[in-house]
Amino acid sequence: MKYAITYENHMVFQHFGKCPAFLLVDIEDGIIVKKELLSANGSGHGALVTLIQEAGVDVLVCGGIGQGARDALAKAHIALIGGASGNVDEIVEQLKKGTLQDDPNGKCNHHHEEGNHDCGNHDCGSHTH
């Protein structure tokens, strides 16, 4: 199973659409087969889904994610574990054990015109799309 974890400074990045990089992790039978970083190159929501799809990702692990991105992932046949937070090494350990679960509260519900918004249980701060 190939996972993409939204990544910045060894932590789960909390806004899928602004994610600077992904930690790609291949796990087979509870063992890490391969780990690598994939730069997002400043891509937006739609391009990020295409990027991880082309990388052969089966499951995206992220913090906050909007409904449009959730729909695009479903269309690309990429499963989602949203609402994740913390150190990526801890997340990888949970993935190896099969204990990491999707948190449906990890949604990013906001209007694109707003500066500040709340993405699930975290504050994304000021930014534009």
Rank of each mutant, 00 (worst) to 15 (best):
M1G: 04
M1Q: 05
Y3H: 02
A4P: 00
A4C: 09
I5F: 15
Y7N: 12
Y7K: 11
E8I: 09
E8R: 13
N9P: 00
H10S: 06
M11K: 12
V12A: 00
Q14G: 02
H15E: 12
H15F: 13
G17W: 10
K18G: 03
K18S: 05
C19G: 02
P20F: 04
L23I: 05
V25A: 13
V25E: 07
V25T: 12
D26M: 09
D26H: 13
I27L: 08
I27F: 12
D29E: 04
G30L: 15
V33W: 11
V33D: 07
K35C: 05
E36Y: 14
L38K: 08
S39T: 07
S39W: 13
A40K: 03
A40V: 03
A40W: 06
G42I: 08
G42V: 05
S43T: 08
S43Y: 11
S43N: 11
G46H: 14
A47R: 15
L51V: 07
I52R: 03
I52F: 01
Q53N: 12
A55M: 04
A55T: 07
G56C: 05
G56S: 05
V57C: 05
V57I: 08
V57H: 10
L60G: 00
L60C: 00
V61Q: 01
G64P: 06
G68M: 06
A69L: 10
A72K: 14
A72Q: 13
A72H: 06
L73Q: 01
A74K: 14
A74L: 04
K75D: 06
K75W: 10
K75F: 13
H77C: 06
A79R: 08
A79Y: 03
L80K: 09
L80N: 09
I81N: 05
G82P: 02
G82H: 09
A84C: 07
A84Y: 00
V88T: 07
D89Q: 14
D89V: 10
D89S: 14
E90K: 15
I91V: 15
V92D: 06
Q94V: 13
Q94N: 15
L95H: 11
K96S: 04
K96Y: 10
K96N: 09
K96H: 11
T99Q: 15
T99E: 14
Q101K: 14
D103N: 13
P104F: 14
P104D: 10
G106D: 00
G106F: 02
G106Q: 02
G106H: 03
G106W: 02
K107C: 02
C108H: 01
C108L: 11
N109S: 10
H112R: 15
H112N: 14
E114L: 12
E114K: 14
E114I: 14
G115F: 15
G115I: 02
G115H: 15
N116E: 13
N116V: 11
H117Y: 04
H117I: 03
C119R: 03
G120K: 09
G120N: 05
H122D: 00
H122T: 02
C124N: 06
G125S: 01
G125L: 01
G125W: 00
S126L: 09
H127E: 01
T128N: 09
